[in-house]
């Protein structure tokens, strides 16, 4: 009887419309994980700033303004100007686009590829699994930035190559986590049932096993997103990232501008602050997401 009541309560007549339910979910998340929600707000702000960059930025980020070299922060230039007279606030606003683009694209590419390798490795087993896992071990034997440095050094510094280099670093972890989930899912009754019903290998993997890998994959993606932002910054800082004059947060801290930083410290402070705040947001949001989605991975 109690079950019946519960069913009645949860029945369609009492279920709010989808936007209402989503809003309820968000409010619950904010109440339970205020720290994570603040992180989520920072990530959302990054997305908005990146999307509306032309409306927010008062100046062209690549254009020098005549007579405006090394100006300290003031109402007309809230973050000051750099050594060739470009408005730093506008460069940071446009830099958000680069950071967001590189980190999202590298995460999707890296985690997506890792996911496919993990599914194949876990489901096929045998020599396929062996070959893929040994290859992943070799990739794990490189620290991420060193691997990215080597790849960019060979491919050449460009937005696309930086993205590929960062993505490659995300593959091995994703493949190992997904492989683990697939291996345990293979033993489950629902997979046996699907097999007995005559489902093909591909259908079992993509229809039945794939949804189970989503929670750890989303958690991994959030970690990888933050790592990618720092990696892009580090590569650009070392002069092997996105070539100037494209405004990249890491790039703004490197090159000839470094000579002016002791006299114009705003050039050193604001780009790094932007990266730190965004990575802080991604980490805080990712932590909360991990607690909600995958309690086994709680640190």
């Amino acid at each position: 009887m109690a079950e019946l009541t519960a069913l009645q309560v949860a029945g369609p007549a009492h279920t709010p419309a989808l936007p209402g339910r989503a809003l309820g979910g968000v409010l619950r998340f904010v109440r339970r994980k205020p720290f994570g929600a603040a992180g989520g707000a920072i990530v959302l702000a990054l997305i908005i700033v990146a999307a509306l960059a032309p409306l927010i930025a008062p100046y062209d980020p690549q254009q020098s303004i005549r007579g405006a070299r090394l100006l300290s922060p003031r109402p007309a230039h809230p973050m000051g100007t750099d050594n060739i007279g470009r408005d730093l606030f506008s460069r940071i606003v446009y830099g958000a686009r680069i950071s967001l683009y590189v980190s999202v694209a590298a995460t999707v590419l890296g985690i997506g590829t890792g996911l496919l390798f993990g599914l194949l490795s876990g489901y096929a087993g045998g020599w396929v699994d062996n070959v893929i896992q040994r290859a992943m071990e070799v990739m794990l034997a490189f620290p991420g930035l060193i691997l990215a440095l080597a790849l960019v050094a060979m491919l050449g510094a460009s937005l696309r190559n930086v993205l590929i280099a960062i993505a490659v670093g995300a593959i091995p972890n994703a493949s190992r986590v997904v492989r683990g989930v697939v291996l345990s899912a293979r033993q489950e009754d629902y997979v046996t049932a699907a097999r007995l019903l005559g489902a093909s290998g591909a259908r079992i993997v993509f229809r039945h096993i794939l949804p189970n890998t989503m929670a750890p994959v989303i958690v991994l993606a959030s970690v990888s997103f933050g790592t990618a932002i720092v990696a892009e910054g580090s590569l650009s800082f070392l002069g092997l990232g996105i070539p100037p004059p494209t405004p990249s947060w890491g790039g703004m801290l490197s090159g000839p501008s470094r000579r002016f930083m002791t006299t114009s410290p705003w050039m050193a402070v604001f780009p790094g602050l932007a990266i730190s705040i965004v990575v802080f947001g991604v980490n805080a949001f990712g932590d909360a997401l991990r607690d909600v989605l995958d309690p086994r991975m709680r640190g």
């Binding site: 800082f237 801290l253 410290p265 050193a268 402070v269 790094g272 730190s276 802080f280 980490n283 805080a284």
Partner: peptide, 22 residues
Amino acid sequence: SIIALSVPSFWLGTLAVVLPAI
């Protein structure tokens, strides 16, 4: 700990050179 995780070393290093100089 979360701040330490979020501040990239190339920025911290830059500040460690620039700020004492100023």
